[in-house]
Amino acid sequence: MSNGNGAGNGKLRIATAWLGGCSGCHMSFLDLDEFLVDLAGMADLVFGPLTDTKAFPPDVDITLVEGAVTNEDNRELAFALRENTRVVVSFGDCAVTGNVTALRNLLGEPEPMLQRVYVEHPDLDGQLPSEVVPALLPMAEPLHELIPIDAYMPGCPPSAERIKTTITALAQALIDGEPVPKATEWLFPDEARFG
């Protein structure tokens, strides 16, 4: 889209991100089948597990974020994509609620879980992962605990139909130059009191 330092080809810039999740949501995204062709017509996929880009690019229109925030890398990426994206979509149950990724929270701090997985029931030689793997955060949390979210797409995984509906609606708004449909904030009828 023609928004400053973008690609300038009039197309939307769409990204996906894969945080602490099983990538099932991305599989569901691939389930879009022929819609992927339509999508390619109106948007460029500029970042995500499906592309080769290493750093999160600037000036992205829509980012679908799969997975809970569970380690340092996730957090870094979440901040980066928030800063460079106009509409961030919390994509799938792990991003929306923490879901399976957050099951580790039941064990409290990450250490007991790591012990159980890597030392008590090792398939290989029992040792804790250290340098190569990013450090786990104390809790695995839903994405909205870390950054503001513009739209939520629950589902485990969300069906291709739901993904298509969401993307179409958001893309249409962006293309028409209309404000992204941020609904009236139902939660805070007293908003005015906060000035």
């Binding site: 901040f79 909205h144 870390l146 503001p148 513009d150 739209a151 939520y152 969401t166 609904a183 009236t184």
Partner: peptide, 23 residues
């Protein structure tokens, strides 16, 4: 989040949640 790096408090919270659905 306006271009500046966010400072991270002990338990970061987003300033404003937004929802897609209509109230």
């Amino acid at each position: 989040y306006n271009g500046t790096a966010p400072s991270v408090p002990p338990r970061p919270q987003a300033p404003d949640p937004a929802v897609t659905t209509k109230g």
